[in-house]
Design a protein around this nucleic acid. Structure first.
Lengths: 140, 140
DNA sequence: CCGAATATCTCGACAAGTCGAGTATCTCGG
DNA sequence: CCGAGATACTCGACTTGTCGAGATATTCGG
């Protein structure tokens, strides 16, 4: 395999990986009883950390009224907590609840174990190449 | 960084990557006017190739009546085609329309270009490590 | 202080998606 | 052939999610 062939193979694999991840994510959300917007909002919180309802509305394209409802559902289900900002008491910080997130993570355990198994077959030099690649890819 | 540290770094990066991919996928679907089930069905077709409405209903957990409606929407929007199976004429094969898929892919061009840039900085040996890793990960 | 601006929440009306039961068409074994 | 089973589609009722306008609470500048 030439370098070019390797690159296109990597691109195809990446697409397959994304598609399967998206599907699994959707399946998990459905099993747990989360709607599409609920799941989207949780993903945002996991990526960016605690956010205010206003910022969540901007990121999702939903109105603030709708976001209030989404947060209500997520809070009732125990996935997030509301915390009033002590500095500016108009504001509310929506923070994910770690235990609930860990419980959600259980639904990804098979995938995590598969990843573990794949990584176990690599030596340190190879792991470094993979880690660097993913770090560059996720931009961090 | 030890091998263990590299492994946990890889796991974290993978999670970040999935979360951001799921979010972007959702954003694209919304922009193009696809509902959650519509997008899910398209992902299934892209992964597994042409499927019958019955199988799609099984995979998604929707009823066959609902799947008919989803396919109607996707067909009207030009994303899929219905083809009657000539061998068993009760059956319908739902196949993605390549041009529409390519048009959808445009929404991922920034990501593809970023991936290109990241890969351009790797030599052939590193590319091979990454390609093998992704092949094992996606199980193919 | 006071008025304007900001942030969130409330709630009735509306839109979209889904179900479920029934219908139409086709296949296959006896 | 014919009847049972399979496959997809139709359509009315219902659930869910979303909007949008207004209400409430808080901050900030002058």
């Amino acid at each position: 395999m030439s370098a070019d062939e390797l690159r296109t193979a990597i691109q195809r694999s990446t697409l397959r990986f994304i598609a399967s991840a998206v599907l699994h994510n959707h399946a998990v959300a459905q099993r747990v009883g989360l709607g599409a917007s609920d799941s989207q909002l949780l993903s945002l919180l996991n990526l960016h950390g605690p956010l205010t309802p206003g910022r969540l509305a901007e990121h999702t394209g939903l109105t603030t009224g709708t976001v209030t409802g989404v947060i209500d559902r997520l809070e009732a289900a125990g996935f997030v907590r509301r915390e009033r900002d002590t500095a500016d008491r108009r504001r509310v910080l929506v923070t994910p609840v770690p235990e609930a997130m860990a419980a959600l993570g259980e639904h990804y355990r098979e995938h995590a174990e598969h990843l573990d198994a794949v990584l176990a077959a690599r030596d340190e030099a190879q792991l470094r190449v993979i880690a660097d690649f993913l770090a560059d890819l996720t931009g961090s």
